[in-house]
Design a binder for these strands. Structure first.
Lengths: 170, 170
DNA sequence: AATTATTTGTTAGTTGACTAATCATGTCAA
DNA sequence: TTGACATGATTAGTCAACTAACAAATAATT
């Protein structure tokens, strides 16, 4: 991903509008602000997780496992929920298993299947990271009141509803 | 980057709050919505650009060059503004130059320096992509009124102000 | 003036994503 | 019941990002 640093100035926007009259200035500015905020937060989250020898992908796997009542899930389910390919999930599980945070458990019913199990060490790693993570997220959102958060999420959802049409073939 | 598909249900959030009482539910929910919207838009943008044989990184370089009155910039400046390393920028420029969209121009004053110059083909590529891109962004933001856009950006900026502290060492 | 430090861009090697192909297993239908 | 197809996970190979080390050129220092 790209971390846009430099939002366009009004003068630059004007230059682009001159050449491309279809541009809607406030739409573009809003879009770019959102893109930048998203990537900045994602980078910051990665930087935080690296202090605990985790990356975003591996961290999400642990969380997804902890969400399950059995603390297990199939690799393909994890891949879907984390939004990565199965091949990528194989790699993530390799790393987590090497560090002893998860275990591959064969399925006695169907020998193609695996259950990925969160180990005690994996749970301990979450217990180490999550409280501080939650404190930081609380801090981050401090400036927004409860009602502002509600409004913000509503606006986000309105935008996101059309996200896929951004790339639709026509 | 990771594309989170599966936001936590209230039941899951409750489980996590039980174990980690520091969690602020609306803060986490807001944070995750924002993260997801950002990554979804970024993925959609990439998917769109790929239809034009561009990737986000290469596209931004072309835009950054068009922003300049001379249509040129130094590789290091481009790297800073695009938020990538100088090594990555070397690679991006390699690809763009191979496709004839930019040119490396030696600096007569200082023989370490280069100017990256947008070519006519590069400008033509932008002219091909940008009008449709702007129409799509306009469409995406259609659901938000002007005043909603204003509020939205203000809220985004409030959050982003604390983004770096998310990863600060203590 | 000569040495040291800094700056600019590139190269080399690593990482973690991806797609496509593969292997093993399971399912279904003629 | 066996041949064709489907499914789950892995392997192989590619791509674009990164860091670290580098060469060349310029600037600063003594």
């Amino acid at each position: 991903m790209l971390q846009l640093r430099d939002l366009p100035t009004p003068a630059i926007l004007d230059k682009f509008v001159q050449r491309y009259p279809d541009a809607d200035v406030t739409a573009v500015v809003t879009f770019l602000h959102l893109l930048r905020a998203g990537t900045d937060l994602s980078f910051a989250l990665d930087a935080y997780l690296q202090q605990h020898a985790l990356l975003q992908g591996r961290w999400w796997v642990l969380i997804l496992l902890m969400r399950e009542s059995s603390n297990t899930a199939a690799p393909s389910v994890l891949a879907d929920k984390a939004g990565v390919s199965r091949a990528t999930m194989t790699g993530l599980i390799d790393g987590l298993e090497r560090d002893g945070l998860v275990e591959r458990v064969p399925d006695p019913e169907d020998r193609r299947r695996l259950a990925i199990q969160l180990t005690a060490a994996g749970q301990a790693k979450l217990d180490e990271v999550m409280p501080d993570y939650y404190r930081r997220v609380r801090q981050l959102m401090q400036p927004l009141s409860e009602s502002e958060r509600k409004v913000f999420i509503e606006l986000l959802d309105k935008i996101q509803a059309g996200a896929s049409s951004l790339s639709a073939p026509l």
